[in-house]
């Protein structure tokens, strides 16, 4: 069963073409980086994958569920970390996670056990009783990831999850999500505009002005210097 399949997605914002015939897929257990400069259409694609809105044309399938035909079946398999924080700063870490669990139908002891499991997974177990306000930027992001994992999704979508973090926190989160793909078999789509978050064995999709410029293994696309290659590719069509 394939993790994530994007098929000929086209979307417009008014008269402006935001995405044009975008197709790619990410297999189960694969870490795929969606690389594109600001305004490439990454956030639009995330909105479509999470059904905040629906595309003009094309299809999206998540863990074998077509998003248009069985939206709730598909949404149940998605864990998503948006660029915007979703944490309620007035509530404790535990309360925040329980709220999200309940939105996915989990409550009571099952939810409590799950809260501890995801917090342990992210090395934050001792923080469960703290108010979210007391967490630093890196921990808040980790908590977002913990939240996204609450309902055991099979597809994890992250929209520039390292924005605003210092170098050490960034490396730690990039590494952790790589491990989630490798160890837990999660399908990961990681949107970024930062080349240094991508590793040579990762799958890579380069998005620019709403089109896919390149798709394949990062090492093959980038050669010796992905950064240079990225500028070359996106510069060539501007």
């Amino acid at each position: 069963m394939s993790g994530l399949v994007i098929e000929s997605i086209t979307h417009m914002w008014g008269a402006k073409q935001a995405l044009e015939d975008v197709s790619f897929s990410v297999a189960r257990g694969e870490f795929c980086a969606l690389l594109g400069p600001n305004g490439a259409g990454k956030s639009t694609l995330f909105g479509l994958m999470t059904r905040l809105f629906t595309p003009r044309a094309g299809a999206i399938s998540i863990a074998g569920h077509d998003l248009a035909r069985e939206p709730h079946g598909a949404l149940r398999h998605i864990g998503v970390v948006f660029q915007q924080p979703t944490v309620d700063l007035d509530l404790t870490v535990r309360r925040n996670l329980l709220y999200f669990a309940a939105l996915h139908g989990l409550f009571g002891r099952r939810a409590e056990v799950r809260v501890m499991a995801v917090l342990e997974r992210l090395g934050m177990a001792e923080r469960s009783g703290e108010r979210a306000e007391a967490l630093n930027g890196g921990h808040r992001r980790r908590m977002e990831i913990a939240r996204a994992l609450m309902h055991c999704p099979s597809v994890l979508l992250l929209d520039e999850p390292t924005v605003g973090l210092d170098a050490a926190a960034r490396v730690a989160i990039v590494d952790h999500v790589h491990r989630l793909a490798a160890d837990d078999g999660l399908t990961v789509l990681w949107a970024t505009h930062l080349v240094d978050e991508i590793r040579p064995p990762d799958r890579l999709v380069i998005l620019h002005r709403g089109r896919v410029l390149a798709a394949g293994e990062a090492g093959e696309i980038g050669g010796t210097d992905l950064s240079e290659r990225f500028i070359e590719l996106t510069g060539a069509v501007s």
Partner: peptide
């Protein structure tokens, strides 16, 4: 291309419970 981070620094304890629900 990437710095190699200290993996254990991030999640020192292996999780006791993983898939309670799937």
């Amino acid at each position: 291309m990437n710095a190699v981070p200290d993996r254990d620094a991030f999640a020192p304890n292996p999780p006791k419970t993983l898939n309670v629900v799937d």
